[in-house]
Design a protein around this nucleic acid. Structure first.
Lengths: 189, 189
DNA sequence: AATACTAACTAACAACTGTTAGTTTGGTTT
DNA sequence: AAACCAAACTAACAGTTGTTAGTTAGTATT
């Protein structure tokens, strides 16, 4: 296990604060005092507040893109691909609880990277939609309200970062299985 | 239809800005310039920035509480109560798109009313959980992963404010029916 | 022993923050 | 015409913001 340097530590603590209060409400003095140093000292390690946000969000967004690319080229059924997507979200979210909060809530404060982020996000949703579409074509999935099905699944998956921390005893594989079951089969007996 | 006074207009425009950038990132000068006036002029109508946030969030939170109370005392089956909850979310969300964003993302910036808000939220979730529980007891709903079922449904319902604006032709009743079907029966054919 | 590097510090900056005080304007009521 | 009032304005405030410059102390390298 690689050990964390000061820059990584700053970014990790920043992500935690961003989750609690949002990017705009966290000051560099807040961040510094969480680390036991003065605000000016942060600049020995990072370029700007903006840059911290970028580091947090873009790396996670790219993880999702890479994960989706792997899923797409697999030869699984559409339902199995959806299960893989659920697992991807559970895995990334449980490893980046704080970062996922920034990704969901503070992406609009990206500046130079905003456009790039939006493209990754849009492409991801498009790939997701196409997997459902293929499932409809292959008769695995109901042929109704494609966009609503997409929205419903994606909303749940994007909120995982809020729910996972409440469960002390988390087994990611088990969570992914159970969640897949609920999203695919519903709650009806 | 009652006509909007200046205070209501300020709160409405504020909610829109809060949705776009978050409460902390919106300045009183931003808000004023959206209304074509100077920041100081806002204070002829409102007490403080805090107070605007409070007005937005608390009124919606109370609407949810009232809606839940009506659903609870009805004599419907658990599944029908869940359908009523979906309808409640669709109705309130489609009438308060901007306010729902503040409720979801900026509640932590409430000060005096934070505790009250958290109580309303906690009680609402508890009532929701109990309705599912009753559905399990009456054999309507699968007896597994109660909390995960609750989380999954609630995540989707709480994200409606992000999705509704993308659908130009919104029929709230139809959306509620379709969403209920997906949440209850899943997407599997 | 001399040098360089890392990571902290103090001090300061210009811009921006929410908010208050006091004033002006234009329309409505006496 | 006089008085009133709602709603805008200008000017200013004290505090906070992200960031820079220059300095210092401790550690590692030559």
């Amino acid at each position: 296990m690689q050990q964390e340097n000061r820059k990584e530590q700053i970014i990790r603590v920043a992500a935690k604060l961003f989750k609690e209060k949002g990017y705009s409400a966290v000051t560099m003095r807040d961040l510094a005092s969480s680390l036991g140093i003065k605000a000016a000292s942060l600049y020995n390690h990072i370029n700007s507040k903006q840059d911290i946000l970028k580091s947090i969000i873009i790396s996670i967004a790219e993880e999702f893109t890479e994960g989706m690319n792997v899923i797409q080229v697999s030869n699984n059924s559409s339902i199995d691909k959806l299960k893989q997507i659920v697992k991807l979200h559970v895995t990334i979210s449980s490893q980046n609880i704080y970062g996922m909060a920034s990704l969901n809530n503070d992406w609009m404060h990206l500046e130079e990277q905003l456009e790039y982020y939006l493209k990754l996000r849009y492409d991801y949703e498009d790939d997701f939609r196409n997997i459902i579409k293929q499932g409809i074509a292959s008769n695995e999935i109901k042929d109704e309200k494609l966009d609503l099905m997409l929205f419903s699944m994606l909303s749940t998956l994007r909120s995982l970062y809020l729910w996972i921390p409440k469960k002390e005893d988390l087994n990611p594989k088990e969570l992914a299985d159970n969640l897949s079951n609920i999203l695919i089969n519903g709650i009806n007996k």
